[in-house]
Amino acid sequence: MPVSAIRAEGVSMDFGSLRVLHGINVDVSEGEVVAVLGPSGSGKSTLLRCLSWLTPPTEGAVYLQGERLGVAVAPDGRQSRLSAAKLARQRSRIGMVFQSFNLWPHLTVLGNITEGPVQVLGLRPGEARERAMTILETVGLAAKASAYPATLSGGQQQRVAIARALAMQPELLLFDEPTSSLDPELVGEVLDVIELLAARRTTMVVVTHEIAFASEAATRVIFMDGGRIVEDTLPATFFRDPAEERSRRFLERTLRRYAQFGSHRSAEG
C-alpha cells in the first residue's frame, strides 16, 4: 500500500454563488508525478490552492501525510480552526510554485531561497546558504546567487522559485502552470528542472498545458472539466485512448495546435 502524500476528500469550492469545485476526491501517493490537465476555468488552479490551503475549501478535507490541514480535531471529534502558527508550519511542508514566480524583489536570489529555511525552519544562516547553493547548482543558477530577481529572465526566475520551494525540503511540490507566463524559448529550461525532480521521485502535482511534459514525465494524468475530475489515469492510457468524450475533444484541440505550431520544445530546437 503506497503512502498517501496528500489526499483531498469531498473538496468543494464556492466563489459567491458559483461552485468551481464539486466534491473532488484525489489521493496522491509518495513519488507520484501527477499532471493536471483541462481547459481554462475547469478548476485546476483552484484545486491546487485548496491542496496547499492557500484558499481553504468551502467543504471537504485535505490530509497531508494523513494529517488534517487547517483544522484541529479534538479527541471527542470536535473541529476547530488550527492556530495560525500550526497552519503556517503545515504549509511549510508543501512547496508551491506559481505561474508568476512571485519572487521577493527586495531580496537577492540567495535571500529568496534562505528566507524560509532561516525564518521558518530555524536554520543558521550559514547552513541555509549552503543548502541554497546546493539547490542552485541543481537548477543551474549558482552563478546568480547574489543577483536580484529583476535582473533575471522569466525562466531563471521560475527556477529560483523552484529552488526556494525545494529549500524547505517539502513533502510534496505543487506547480500552478509553471511555464504559462514564460516566453516559448524559456519553457524548456524550467521543464528540464521539473523533469529532473520527477526522475528523483519527488512527489509533485503539476497543473500544466504542456502535453509533452504530461505524457513524458508524469506518472499519472488527471483531466478536469467543469470543476470535476473527468479522468484519472495513466498518461499512456489518457493520451492513446481517453475514456471520456470531453477528454478526447480537449486532446484533439490541443494536439491540433501542437501540430500547427509545434511544441515549445521543438521551438527551442
Binding site: 503556517a88 503545515q90 519572487l103 524560509g116 525564518q119 526556494r164
Partner: peptide
C-alpha cells in the same frame, strides 16, 4: 506589494508578523 508575493510567503510557512516585517514593510518603505 503584489498579492502573489504574500501568497508565496504564506506557502513558505512565514507567519503574518514575519510577512509584514520582512516582505511587506521593506518594499513599502522603498
Amino acid at each position: 506589494v503584489p498579492r502573489g508575493q504574500l501568497e508565496a510567503a504564506t506557502t513558505i510557512g512565514l507567519t503574518w508578523g514575519k510577512i509584514w516585517r520582512r516582505i511587506v514593510l521593506p518594499q513599502a518603505f522603498v
